[in-house]
């Protein structure tokens, strides 16, 4: 597995180094992502557009078209529109759902288009040329290991999970694996739908139910915002850590500022779409196409390296 930073650097530099050829055919890369309906997808859209601008500015021979779709069926239609309007050389897609998009992407691939799949995999991995994804299990386990370490291997934690999906399951699975072998006791795990208001309510209820809590883990930063307000309101002092995950800029700011309750963060950065676009674009500048699977690591973000993960202009 390649390290994310290294990989992005390689992809970026290789593109930049290559000399744009004259009179070359204009290559078209289509990017299909979900519309910005919450923080993380908002970040995806931001980074996708950023990548498109950068690439088009640097290489006149590459055109990047970004399409956002508010639902799976809309994304299918968007794919049809993209392929209908001309020959696609490459498609970078963050599928809404694996099942529904597999067929339509297959038909795009059949036309000879280079396919890059991001984040959510298709049901048939044969279709894609390149797969770029974050590591949800690592998001959970990195956080868990941090807690095991800091709490000295024992303590009581409560967990807020999101919406029943693979992403949510994997993070919880990783978290539980990370705790294995320690005496850390998970008091409760409940759904709060990746929604800050619901997380606020749930955290209040946790606080009412459990007189002693050492740490809280919300498996997404939106929820962490609600958790932090609830803790502050309760005036409870025994809670040492309240951690999140995803790399929301408000949380990164806390890490950069050395917040004692939220000293670390685990990224599941929406910028993975940017990485994928750059890696896909590289082949149109004389590079050999990158194929295979690229899993982005979920390293621990601490005060020291937080700067690298901070995008003040991104909505996320």
């Amino acid at each position: 597995m390649l390290k994310r930073n290294l990989l992005a650097a390689v992809a970026l530099s290789s593109v930049l180094v290559a000399v744009p050829a004259f009179a070359q055919d204009k290559k078209v890369i289509a990017v299909s992502v979900p519309a910005a309906t919450h923080g993380w997808t908002g970040g995806v859209v931001y980074h996708a557009q950023k990548a498109a601008e950068e690439i088009q500015a640097a290489f006149p021979n590459i055109e990047v078209v970004v399409k956002t779709s508010p639902s799976a069926s809309a994304q299918v239609s968007a794919l049809e529109d993209l392929t209908a309007s001309g020959d696609l050389d490459a498609l970078v897609i963050l599928p809404f759902s694996s099942d529904e998009l597999t067929g339509p992407v297959q038909s795009v691939a059949d036309a000879g288009t280079f396919i890059t799949v991001v984040d959510r995999g298709l049901t048939d991995p044969e279709i894609q040329d390149l797969y770029v994804a974050g590591d949800n299990i690592a998001v959970g386990s990195t956080t868990a290991k941090f807690l095991v370490d800091k709490l000295g291997g024992k303590g009581d934690v409560v967990v807020l999970r999101g919406i029943p999906t693979v992403i949510d399951d994997e993070r919880i699975q990783g978290f539980q694996e990370g705790l294995e072998g320690s005496d850390i006791n998970v008091l409760d795990i409940q759904y709060a739908n990746w929604n800050s208001d619901e997380a606020f309510s749930l955290m209040q209820d946790y606080l009412a139910k459990y007189p002693h809590i050492d740490a809280v883990w919300a498996n997404d930063d939106d929820m962490l915002l609600g958790v932090l307000e609830a803790i502050e309101q309760s005036g409870r002092t025994e809670i040492k850590y309240a951690l999140g995950g995803n790399g929301m800029k408000e949380i990164i700011e806390k890490v950069m500022a050395g917040d004692p309750m939220t000293p670390i963060e685990t990224p599941y950065p929406p910028s993975m779409i940017k990485t994928a676009i750059y890696m896909t674009a590289a082949q149109f500048n004389g590079q050999a196409p990158v194929r295979g699977t690229v899993k982005l690591d979920a390293p621990l973000i601490t005060q020291e390296n937080a700067e690298e993960y901070y995008f003040p202009d991104s909505p996320f």
Binding site: A36, T37, H38, G42, Y46, P315, F316
Partner: peptide, 11 residues
């Protein structure tokens, strides 16, 4: 609201 917040949040 999604447009106003670019999909993120308005603090």
């Amino acid at each position: 609201i999604t447009f106003m917040s670019d999909g993120g949040n308005i603090p």
